[in-house]
């Protein structure tokens, strides 16, 4: 079964075709990151206009890449939320029009659920029950997955999401946007020697990164003039604090819940320090989506669409955007 996935929830216009929820036949992403970099993040109006310009060429390219015709497709999956309303609307309306024109079933997809299904596109397939850590610019959620489509949210961020903490930290250190890769690059050869706070929020599985950000700000203020090696050390210390909290709290929850695997998902899952820390601390297998599939893409949407379709969850052509959609 071949599913066409469409993703426009934020700043990537993406379309992909995936077979049986695991084999990528084509995967096209038009990133707006350069356009948004000067704003230090996504600007909704700009994002929405860019999606309108790029969505049709991106669909054509995805079809061309695989050399397929519409008759070879079985369904269309499209992200309906969470995300920016103006961006989601572009993808959902185009997907509806295409589905109607070619008489294909339409499946509305939860973007957070799709991030998890990126793990089905790797070589090692997930097993249930597993604990998913979704870490991105807008979310830091711990979700227990007991089967296809069976999610239970265990923890969430109370203030800044992990990706957002990276963005703010990078801004404080003058390292640019997107903050995650900028901090990771600056930290690569540095020792995390500064003492920065970790919010453990004992007795629960929620996260908090706001206090860490404030501590970094005052560390920078106290320093005055910043030089490269000091910034590198601060970036390494900041990254280490985020990694420590994510790894420790995830492993604690995984042990308590008795899961068989840990799945990472979302843009921050691409952070190498995070992956390395999980690999060295976890007794359980830790799965990370293949390179390029942690950040927003449509292959994960198509994969998720396959499993939704298999369980009979098809939406009518009246599907609408749900900007504040959550998972579990």
């Amino acid at each position: 079964m071949r599913v066409l996935g469409v993703e426009t929830s934020c700043d990537e216009t993406a379309v992909a075709i995936v077979e049986d929820g695991m084999a990528i036949l084509s995967n096209v992403i038009a990133s707006q990151v350069d356009i948004h970099a000067r704003y230090g993040g996504i600007v909704p109006e700009v994002a929405s206009r860019q999606h309108m310009i790029t969505i049709l060429p991106v669909i054509e390219q995805a079809m061309f890449q695989f050399g397929t015709s519409w008759h070879d497709l079985d369904a269309i999956g499209v992200t309906v939320g969470p995300g920016l309303a103006g961006s989601l609307i572009v993808g959902v309306n185009v997907a509806k029009a295409v589905a109607l024109a070619h008489n294909l079933p339409l499946i509305g997809i939860n973007h957070l659920e799709a991030h998890i299904y990126a793990n089905w596109l790797g070589d090692v397939k997930p097993v249930f029950p597993c604990l998913c850590l979704i870490v991105s610019g807008g979310h830091s959620d711990l979700v227990l997955m007991e089967g296809y489509g069976k999610f239970k949210k265990i923890g969430r961020t109370r203030d800044d999401a992990a990706g957002e903490a990276f963005d703010k930290g990078a801004r404080i250190l003058g390292l640019g946007y997107p903050g995650g890769p900028a901090i990771e690059a600056a930290a690569r050869h540095a020792v995390p020697s500064f003492s920065l706070p970790r919010a453990w929020l004992k007795g629960g599985d929620d996260f908090s990164f706001s206090g860490l950000k404030t501590a970094l700000l005052h560390l920078v203020r106290g320093r005055g003039v910043l030089d490269g090696s000091w910034v590198a050390e601060a970036a390494a210390s900041f990254q280490q604090a985020i990694v420590d909290v994510l790894v420790t709290k995830t492993l604690e929850a995984a042990q308590r819940l008795g899961v068989r695997q840990i799945l990472l998902a979302g843009g921050v899952a691409a952070n190498k320090a995070l992956g390395d820390a999980f690999a060295s601390c976890s007794m359980l297998p830790v799965l990370i989506p293949p390179p390029g599939l942690c950040t927003d893409n449509a292959a994960m949407v198509a994969a998720c669409g396959y499993y939704r379709f298999q369980s009979g969850q098809v939406d009518g052509y009246g599907a609408d955007v749900v900007p504040s959609l959550s998972l579990g």
């Binding site: 807008g138 203030d159 957002e164 504040s324």
Partner: peptide, 13 residues
């Protein structure tokens, strides 16, 4: 729920 930071998306409802 906890209203969390909207810096990334600019507005949360």
């Amino acid at each position: 729920e906890y209203a969390f930071s909207p810096s990334f998306v600019l507005v949360r409802e």
